[in-house]
Amino acid sequence: MADLSKRSPALRVAIVGLGPIGIKVAEALDRGIDGLVLSAVSVQHPDKHRDWLAKLSRPPAILPIDGLAEVADIVIECAPSKLVRSIVAPFVKSGKTAVVLSAGALLENDDLIDLARQNGGQIVVPTGALIGLDAVTAAAVGEITSVRMVTRKPVRGLAGAPYIVENNIDIEKITEPLRIFEGTAREAAKGFPANLNVAVALSLAGIGPDRTRLEIWADPALTRNMHRVEVESDSARFSMSIENIPSENPKTGRITALSVIAWLRKQRAALRVGT
């Protein structure tokens, strides 16, 4: 018979944003993840989501962002990158955990990492639409000499990106694969804030955003987001590739939500595989 006295209180989870990712995570929490409970959500238009939330078995509270840290231990950011600071700061300042999907925003708010360090908080960037971050993190304990990533996306998945707009690229007229960007992960994060969070996650796991090199290709023949990563280090040489099926939002792969759910399941799991 289980010793109930050894069970820790359930971790309370808040979600900011109920787009394709936020909804999937909320549904998973409502179905049940051991030791976790969905306590609150924050959305820009509450009335739009109220009926859907009411259908959950345990409807969470609907609160403004600045009220979440009082009712949750973990916050999951599924929101526009401009909101990252307002979401993350109250949690890490309170020694709690913030899961950040808009990883590119961390490059402009890197003091949040110091804030977390000073207060015993933690910022988590989940694997998301990329693979092999465990290997990159392990290689970074030694010495990595180079990291190169090539991303190929369907044309519509790049629509509206600041880099596309600023350089007057008419992506609707692209009829064959076209390299539209080459540079660092930091530059990519500024030019494609909704598209290349995977590149920032890769850079944070490895040799940083200024040494991680990236190419972006627009390919009208593709229906999936494709990433290939090549790493050279003193412990291993390896390459990784993945083809992600887009979610309802063409800028985001379906596996991104599943990555967050997998991380949540690890929090109280008896067996944890991977770092």
Rank of each mutant, 00 (worst) to 15 (best):
M1L: 12
A2V: 04
D3G: 00
S5G: 09
A14W: 04
I15V: 15
G17S: 13
L18H: 03
G19R: 02
G19C: 08
P20Q: 13
K24L: 08
A28K: 01
R31M: 02
R31I: 03
G32Y: 01
L36A: 01
L36D: 03
A40I: 06
S42M: 08
S42Q: 07
Q44W: 06
K48I: 07
W52F: 04
K55T: 09
S57D: 01
R58T: 00
P60Y: 00
P60A: 00
A61Q: 03
A61Y: 02
I62Q: 03
I65Q: 15
G67C: 05
G67T: 10
A69W: 06
V71A: 10
A72Y: 03
D73A: 05
E77P: 07
A79H: 11
A79E: 11
P80H: 14
P80F: 12
P80R: 11
V88C: 05
V88T: 11
K93E: 06
S94Q: 10
S94K: 12
K96W: 00
A98K: 07
S102Q: 14
S102K: 11
A103G: 04
A105N: 13
A105V: 11
L106I: 05
L107E: 09
E108M: 05
N109L: 02
I113H: 00
D114Q: 09
L115Y: 03
A116D: 01
A116E: 05
Q118P: 06
Q118G: 09
N119Q: 06
N119K: 05
Q122S: 05
I123Y: 01
V124K: 07
V125Y: 03
T127D: 12
L130C: 09
L133E: 04
A135F: 00
A140F: 06
G142K: 12
E143L: 14
I144R: 05
S146I: 14
V147R: 01
M149F: 08
T151C: 14
R152Q: 02
A159C: 10
A161F: 12
P162L: 13
P162I: 15
Y163P: 06
V165A: 12
V165S: 10
V165D: 11
I171W: 15
T175K: 03
P177V: 03
L178F: 07
R179S: 08
I180M: 06
G183V: 10
T184M: 08
T184E: 06
T184H: 07
E187L: 10
A188S: 15
N197C: 08
A199L: 10
L202I: 12
S203M: 15
L204R: 04
G206T: 15
I207C: 15
G208T: 14
G208E: 08
P209H: 15
P209C: 14
R211W: 11
T212Y: 09
R213I: 14
L214M: 11
I216C: 10
I216E: 10
W217C: 08
D219C: 05
P220I: 09
H227D: 13
H227R: 10
E230W: 07
E230M: 04
E232W: 02
E232P: 02
S233E: 00
D234Y: 00
R237I: 09
S241F: 08
I242D: 06
I245T: 06
S247C: 05
N249C: 09
N249S: 13
P250M: 11
K251F: 13
K251W: 15
G253I: 08
T256Q: 06
A257Y: 03
S259D: 10
V260Y: 02
V260E: 04
A262P: 00
W263A: 03
L264V: 02
K266D: 02
K266C: 05
A270C: 01
L271V: 04
V273S: 00
